[in-house]
């Protein structure tokens, strides 16, 4: 069997809604990935430290509070500072279309908004992940 892709599913920010994150974690699991799930209200420091210790290939963040423009780029930059620039960062949640180009510019590889089939996110990861 292929070595499983390791993904960190993280909830930055202060909103308390992780249904979406859990659905996506479960879908990733069913797609044969190893999903590290860390629970709600993670600081960027916690997310980056976890990504490094767990040596994940993907960080998937979900945010519903509107703080994505602030928090997603911080995580991307902190990963780069720690030399983990090979990690694929994707985001999901309630994110206005206008914000998506800005986030991609900041280094988020893709944004998945509500209604996206989980298979689309899985396909994107499989095609873009850098295997170790």
């Amino acid at each position: 069997m292929d070595k499983p892709i390791r993904v960190l599913v993280a909830k930055p920010g202060l909103d308390g809604h992780d249904r979406g994150a859990k659905v996506i974690a479960r879908a990733f699991r069913d797609a044969g990935m190893e999903v590290i799930y860390t629970g709600l209200r993670q600081t960027p420091e916690q997310i980056v430290e976890t990504a490094i210790q767990e040596d994940v290939e993907v960080v998937a963040m979900s945010i519903l509070s509107g703080a994505h423009n602030h928090l997603f780029p911080i995580v991307v930059n902190m990963l780069r500072e720690r030399g983990a620039d090979d990690v694929l960062v994707v985001g999901g949640g309630v994110i206005p279309d206008d914000d998506i180009p800005v986030l991609k510019e900041a280094g988020v590889a893709e944004i998945f908004t509500p209604g996206t089939p989980t298979t689309k996110a899985i396909e994107f990861i499989k095609q873009n992940v850098k295997r170790k």
């Binding site: 069997m1 990733f28 990935m33 190893e34 860390t38 629970g39 916690q46």
Partner: peptide
């Protein structure tokens, strides 16, 4: 499927940023 949900870290949040602790799931 060969997949897994590794969720033990949920109970260890305060340890994530302690440089004296290394957690691996």
């Amino acid at each position: 499927t060969g997949g897994a949900i590794l969720g033990d870290r949920i109970r260890m949040q305060e340890l994530f940023t302690d440089p004296g602790v290394f957690i691996r799931s």
